[in-house]
């Protein structure tokens, strides 16, 4: 058993991690870093306007349900972990659990979507919209744009799940070349999904918690 385990981890190390390596396509990182710069600017703009009218921002924030923000953070973190586990499994010669992990990741992503829709409808039913005030304008724009990222990410996860299923069905041990080629796509999609998680981690305290 031990010999098998150390053999497996040695394989993980030899495929792609013998030297420093950029996960996925270099192009996806240009996109990810660009997106992070844009959201970074959003966070700063939000803080600037918050500083102009802290009372309004605090009163408006008190109308948000922190539980929704927290549950959604947990959903995205769990989803990210499932994706990370799937990526590790995809590095092996014989894929086993990756399709299950990607499916669980999609389930958590869908959970995020359901909570978000419940939250939006509660707000809209209470008469709180994008025109209510500055705080809610930023709330709807930032969470809306983030939600768009989640939706795109769900599409990416479907694609990764199909790839993983095809690899798992293949009973012949995959060659290093096949694994390398698959990993570029898998790591690109996974990195994007982790970025969606990362942006929400900042939005959560910024919009829901900060006093």
């Amino acid at each position: 058993m031990n010999a098998k385990l150390s053999g497996e981890s040695a394989l993980v190390r030899t495929v792609g991690h013998t030297k420093a390596h950029v996960p996925g396509e270099v192009g996806i990182w240009v996109f990810i870093l660009g997106d992070m710069l844009i959201f970074g600017a959003f966070f700063i703009v939000f803080m600037y306007y918050r500083g102009l009218n802290p009372e309004l921002f605090s009163q408006s924030q008190a109308m948000l349900n922190q539980n929704y923000g927290a549950i959604n953070t947990l959903f995205l973190l769990a989803s990210s972990w499932f994706v990370a586990m799937a990526v590790e499994d995809m590095r092996s010669k014989q894929v086993r659990l990756a399709p299950v992990f990607f499916a669980l990741a999609m389930f958590c992503g869908a959970g995020f979507g359901v909570v978000k829709i419940i939250e939006y409808s509660e707000k809209i039913n209470a008469g709180i919209t994008i025109t209510t005030n500055d705080f809610f304008m930023y709330y709807y724009i930032f969470t809306g744009l983030h939600f768009l990222h989640v939706l795109i990410g769900m599409g990416v996860l479907v694609f990764l799940w199909l790839k993983a299923r095809a690899a798992a069905k293949n009973k012949i041990a995959r060659t290093d070349d096949v694994i390398e080629k698959d990993m570029v796509l898998i790591e690109s999609g996974a990195s994007y999904w982790h970025m969606v998680d990362l942006l929400w981690i900042v939005l959560f305290p910024l919009l829901y918690l900060m006093k």
């Binding site: 991690h17 420093a20 390596h21 950029v22 996960p23 990210s80 972990w81 994706v83 990370a84 790591e187 996974a190 990195s191 982790h194 970025m195 998680d197 990362l198 981690i201 900042v202």
Partner: peptide, 17 residues
Amino acid sequence: KVRIVIRYFMEVGKSPL
């Protein structure tokens, strides 16, 4: 938390300097 996600989930810890 963001840095942990970048380092461990996005595997930037193993990426070029």
